[in-house]
């Protein structure tokens, strides 16, 4: 007979595991990836591949030679970081910037804190913000979308709807005029036919991914919903007060990285709050800060900064927003 195995209860475990969650998110990102290939051609795939490979490589190197721990590549978190990082950059980004971004994301954003689960800030966003600040020109020259263009690099670049809006408003134009002159309609924004980062363009593809993650119970609805709701509410009120100076909620929801940020970046388990109450506060904070940066800030887009700022608040939120204890309220009465 075999030796009996003795351990403490419980003796059963559900089938969930860290790699399953990570690969689940990667699967959820595939629709958006396909859309990016559709609109940006092979460039999108190239940037993706560079980001994923360099993220995995850096994690492996750091784990092997600096931390000297066990190999953490199979858990899939490095690949996911690489994928999200690539989603946040223009499709024509030079390869060396991508590699530097990956090094910062993995090295500074994740491994310097001790690896998976210990980082306070979303590593992909750390990498992205680093690249945005260090290489502002390359990071904001967006290639024009062209359907199924596999011929090569398209030199033409265009601005994102958010940038067009910001510039127009700064020149004193009215929102309705800017909207009319914009090359993309709201429907285009839904499908992804607009300038922007590789993965953020198609709201529909991202929503499909989000629904998949909800169905697989990888994420809960709280964070995305509270971000969307606060953006809609905030911009809606401003739009009602002065429709000429502030764009409407639909525009704000569909442009820029709101979909990507709210569904994939803000919901990163490691850097988001751990109670449902906390998730609401966190989501609302992200929504409000995003809109504030977009409307009054220097950058046309603010969700990356908003998420990073709220990441910083997570320990505070966790400490103050504890779940309600069973049987404690009665005691106080």
């Amino acid at each position: 007979m075999n030796k009996l195995n003795v351990s403490l209860s419980p003796h059963v475990k559900n089938k969930d595991s860290v790699p399953k969650i990570m690969y689940g998110v990667i699967i959820a990102l595939i629709p958006a990836l396909l859309v990016s290939v559709y609109f940006f051609g092979l460039d999108a795939l190239r940037v993706q591949a560079i980001a994923i490979v360099s993220c995995i490589l850096f994690e492996w190197l750091i784990q092997k030679f600096l931390i000297k721990g066990q190999n953490t590549i199979p858990d899939g978190s490095a690949a996911l970081t690489g994928m999200l990082l690539a989603f946040n950059v223009p499709a024509n980004l030079p390869w060396w910037i991508m590699v530097i971004g990956a090094l910062v994301a993995i090295g500074v954003g994740k491994m310097s804190f001790g690896g998976l689960g210990k980082n306070p800030f979303n590593p992909a966003l750390v990498g992205r913000v680093f690249m945005l600040i260090s290489f502002p020109v390359q990071m904001t020259s967006w290639p024009k979308v062209s359907v199924l263009n596999f011929t090569g690099i398209d030199a033409a670049t265009g601005a994102t709807p958010l940038a067009i809006m910001k510039e127009g408003l700064a020149n004193g134009e009215k929102v309705s005029d800017i909207m009319n002159s914009m090359p993309t309609s709201l429907v285009d924004m839904m499908t992804g036919q607009m300038g922007g980062s590789l993965g953020e363009i198609s709201a529909i593809a991202l929503l499909i991914g989000g629904i998949y993650m909800l169905w697989k119970k990888i994420i809960t609805i709280h964070i995305p919903l509270s971000i969307f709701a606060s953006i809609v509410l905030f911009t809606g009120i401003m739009n009602l007060i002065n429709p000429g100076a502030y764009a409407g909620p639909a525009f704000h929801l569909l442009t820029g990285g709101v979909m990507l940020g709210a569904i994939f970046m803000a919901t990163d388990m490691v850097t988001s709050p751990m109670s449902k109450k906390g998730m609401w506060i966190y989501g609302i904070g992200i929504g409000v800060i995003t809109v504030a940066i977009r409307v009054w800030g220097a950058y046309p887009e603010g969700i990356s900064f908003a998420i990073l700022i709220m990441n910083g608040f997570v320990p505070l939120i966790n400490n103050s927003m504890k779940p309600k204890l069973f049987g404690v309220v009665k005691e106080k009465k």
Binding site: K3, L4, N5, V6, S7, L8
Partner: peptide, 22 residues
Amino acid sequence: KEIREYDGPQSCAIAHSLFGGT
């Protein structure tokens, strides 16, 4: 002689609470 296996954290206190040992 080791006649059974222990599966759990590397903590003597936890193993001690579980059983007499392997």
